[in-house]
């Protein structure tokens, strides 16, 4: 079979000269190449890079390009290069500034509320190791985090309903008038914030438990022996060991809270008026309801920059923690 393919003895010699060990050698060399320390890193990285380029770099460049164009699907005009016009329009647009500042208020309040409650719950659950059915109790407690936000948002509309909602039935039962929580501008923001807090307080509680878990028991026992006052224990021992984990939790929540979209879309669609209109929702509407693509791309670029700033702070704290762990 071999001789058939390689032809005359002379040509076989030529083939052998080109590939010193013939067919088997080729395979072996292929495997040697696969195993070559010089190419290995690149081979291992290639799949990720391919994914990253197709689904990240190309779309982001596309976005950047569009953000300098006047382009709307509804107007029917061809896209036209307008330089920084979209950005200037956004920076001068008072309703975008309102949405942005509302979003920052939202982020601030949700992070403060959830951190406060989460830390309190974390301390409360610190000594819970003997709790009967602890695993089930924690599962129930952590459930809000893993529910589909679309389902949560929709179902809370029933709970908040002025006529049929269980919450208003309780309110009426204690003799107060019904409140249309999601329907009036004075309460809608707080009602959505309450649901967000219900969903994410368990996350901060989880982080607090982790932070408390990282405190060495010996130091706490020593403090007990020395009868250190509680505020000193908190500052010198607990915060000293737990602060980084807690900070990472707060930062992750800040980043996530900035992205809130599904929940408001389901619960209020940004209304009434624009009282619950967070900036991610503005972007959604301008892109996929008004198809104002050039303008939306510019807003998207601005939001991306804000998130990247948050992420950099997260990484900075993470590196501080690493350095602290290594020392």
């Amino acid at each position: 079979m071999q001789s058939n393919r390689s032809g005359s003895p002379a040509s076989r010699g030529l083939l052998a000269a080109m590939h010193p060990t013939g067919q088997a050698g080729l395979t072996a060399r292929f495997f040697a190449l696969l195993n070559d320390r010089r190419f290995l890193p690149l081979m291992l990285l290639t799949p990720v890079l391919v994914f990253f380029i197709i689904w990240n770099t190309i779309p982001l460049l596309w976005l950047l390009g569009l953000s300098f164009q006047k382009y709307s699907l509804t107007s029917g005009d061809d896209p036209a290069f307008t330089g920084f016009a979209n950005y200037l329009e956004i920076l001068g647009n008072s309703s975008v500034w309102q949405d942005l500042s509302r979003t920052f208020v939202w982020v601030f309040l949700s992070v403060v509320l959830q951190t406060g409650l989460g830390v309190a719950l974390g301390f409360l659950f610190w000594g819970s190791h003997k709790l009967p059915g602890r695993r089930i109790a924690l599962t129930l407690l952590f459930a809000p985090m893993v529910l589909t936000p679309v389902a949560t948002g929709t179902f809370f509309r029933l709970i908040y309903d002025p006529t049929f909602g269980i919450l208003n039935q309780v309110i009426r039962a204690i003799g107060l008038p019904s409140v249309d929580f999601l329907g009036q501008s004075s309460t809608a923001f707080w009602a959505v914030l309450a649901v967000d807090t219900w969903m994410w307080t368990p996350f901060l509680m989880l982080m607090t438990l982790a932070a408390l878990g990282s405190v060495p028991k010996a130091e706490l026992e020593a403090a007990e022996v020395d009868q250190l006052p509680w505020h000193q224990r908190l500052r010198l021992i607990i915060l000293h060991h737990g602060k980084f984990i807690l900070m990472l939790g707060v930062l992750l929540r800040t980043i996530d809270s900035f992205k809130t979209m599904d929940l408001v879309l389901q619960m209020t669609k940004g209304g009434p008026g624009s009282t619950t209109n967070l900036v991610a929702l503005t972007l959604y509407r301008q892109s996929f309801e008004s198809f104002n693509l050039g303008w939306s791309s510019a807003l998207a670029v601005i939001l991306l920059l804000i998130s990247i700033a948050f992420t950099s702070i997260f990484i900075f704290v993470l590196n501080l923690k690493r350095r602290g762990d290594a020392a």
Binding site: L60, A280, L281, L283, S296, A300, V301, L304, I308, F310
Partner: peptide, 15 residues
């Protein structure tokens, strides 16, 4: 993973 979904999906949608 930290970027707002709406901002990420817009160019992907166009693509």
């Amino acid at each position: 993973r930290m970027l707002p979904g709406t901002a990420v999906i817009l160019p992907v949608y166009l693509m």
